[in-house]
Design a protein around this nucleic acid. Structure first.
Length: 447
RNA sequence: GGCGGCGUGGCCGAGUGGUUAGGCAGAGGCCUGCAAAGCCUUGCACAGCGGUUCGAAUCCGCUCGCCGCCUCCA
């Protein structure tokens, strides 16, 4: 049933076996050197969606997402702000989780920190040195890609072309420009850890291998991350697993990047919008809808216009649910399977939402035709779909005073006192509520 | 330069051979105290040029344009 595009194979594959009840996934997490931006939000949303979808399909999901808390940028930031790298990392880690909680991202089953896996990484590196696939030079320990069979196989590039176009700094000591650091030596004054090769820090690509294999075991189901991690990060993870003789992940999945004005949003370009700010301004539901508008592999334009459009689109859905006065029926759930089937097809959220909006249209039409049972069944489906993808229903509590104003206005309308009625509607507006009259009575919502 | 991908109606964005995607915006109508909302109707859309085919947005070739990766990055 569930088909997904596998980066390594360049084609769609069956993600779940016929009798598979458990699914293990590892998703590359953040380097906690700064606040999360909209790009991180998409990563979180995409894999949260996959997880929710599989769980709805009855599969138990074990998800691991690491926290990279040792990194040069963390160290730089610590130096600049007169703190320890650990303090900086913990601050942004806490911010990461609280922001993702606000986005209603389910917490991973495990969130390992790189610094807590140093011994395992050292053990792995030692093994690679012992079996001759890694070597020590003056500034660290490197993996020799020549020892990796079929080396660039995830990014499916030609090795010679990769070498020709290599822009990495050429070290005289490295056996190949493509060789990458497993352990970087540092002076004793610098932040670091002890190792058989001296004081230093692990290379970035090593932690994910240690933690994914350590927590999920060989041959885990899926490894995911942003498209920009395909090369070199994921390529080099795979390379390490290969020289260690370990089966790595069965499949690879990568989400497309978020763009602003047609250009990739990234820390290095500096065109980022903070996830926390977007949450402050638009709230989690419109934001999630905006993310799911495009299929996860496509580039996604983000910005005010996009988010405002998502707000209006969501308003259409919420208006419909309000029209049935919360009387949603969970019984029939028309179109529900069609919706889920779209998600089975490589998480085709645009198609899924087309089905959802079609249910909204049909539901509204049913109300207009006086077919309330049909409308409630459709509302039940819509509610189920929103829940399925983590958007959920609007949580609207109407304070007693507001309800009283609405009732008062109904009395004014009944006595054809439209001046008072309009005044009360204005008053409600000042209090932050929007009142719409329908043939079934007034509907109140938050502005 | 190499590799990967993309170019769909005003905007966003599905769709891999043949009936309306969907959303936002716009136009007309119905409904309506007003305002919204809702419903109905409405848009000669598939970068260009060739080719395959009874038939192509969908397959093949070429051209043009855009993006990503090749360096830290979700």
């Amino acid at each position: 049933m569930n088909v997904v595009y596998d980066t390594a194979l360049g084609e769609r594959v069956q993600l779940i076996g016929p009798k598979q009840g458990r699914f293990t996934m590892y998703v590359c997490g953040p380097t906690v050197d700064n606040s999360a931006h909209l790009g991180h939000g998409r990563l979180a949303i995409v894999f949260d969606l996959l997880r929710r979808h599989l769980e709805k399909r009855g599969v138990e999901v074990v998800m691991v997402q690491n926290i990279t808390d040792v990194d040069d940028k963390i160290i730089d930031r610590a130096k600049r702000s007169g703190r320890t790298p650990m303090e900086v990392a913990r601050e942004f880690e806490a911010a990461w989780f609280s922001t993702l909680d606000r986005l209603r991202i389910l917490r991973p089953t495990h969130s390992p920190r790189a610094t807590e896996w140093i011994p395992q990484m050292i053990g792995m590196i030692a093994e690679m040195v012992d079996n001759g696939s890694a070597y020590r030079i003056s500034d660290g320990v490197y993996l020799s890609v020549d020892r990796v069979e079929g080396y660039p196989r995830l990014s499916r590039q030609d090795r010679d072309e990769l070498l020709a176009g290599a822009r990495v700094e050429v070290s005289e000591e490295k056996r190949s420009p493509l060789d990458f650091a497993l352990w970087k030596l540092a002076s004793a004054q610098e932040y670091g850890f002890d190792s058989p090769w001296g004081w230093g820090r692990p290379g970035w690509h090593t932690e994910c291998v240690a933690m994914s294999l350590g927590l999920l075991g060989e041959g885990f189901d899926l490894h995911g991350g942003g498209m920009d991690l395909v090369f070199p990060h994921h390529e080099n993870e795979w390379a390490q697993a290969a020289v260690l003789g370990k089966r790595f992940c069965r499949h690879w999945m990568h989400n497309g990047l978020v763009e602003m004005a047609g250009e990739k949003m990234s820390k290095s370009i500096g065109n980022t919008m903070s996830l926390a700010e977007a949450l402050d301004r638009y709230g989690p539901r419109p934001l999630r809808l905006a993310y799911l508008r495009a299929q996860y592999r496509s580039p996604l334009e983000m910005g005010e216009a996009v988010l405002e459009e998502a707000e209006r689109a969501l308003e259409r859905i919420d208006d419909f649910i309000r029209r049935v006065q919360g009387a949603v029926s969970a019984a029939a759930a028309p179109k529900m399977e069609e919706f889920a089937a779209a998600l089975d097809d490589d998480l085709d959220t645009p198609r899924a939402f087309a089905i959802l909006f079609e249910a909204v249209r049909a539901g509204n039409a049913a109300i207009d035709a006086g077919q309330l049972d049909a409308a409630r069944a459709l509302a039940g489906s819509v509610a189920g779909m929103l829940d399925w993808v983590g958007i959920g229903l609007e949580r609207l509590e109407i304070p007693g005073e507001i309800a009283e104003l609405v009732a008062e206005r109904e009395r004014a309308k009944a006595s054809r006192d439209y001046v008072s009625a309009d005044r009360i509607r204005e008053r409600l507006g000042e209090l932050g509520y929007v009142l719409k009259d329908t043939r079934d009575g007034p509907v109140i919502s938050r502005a």
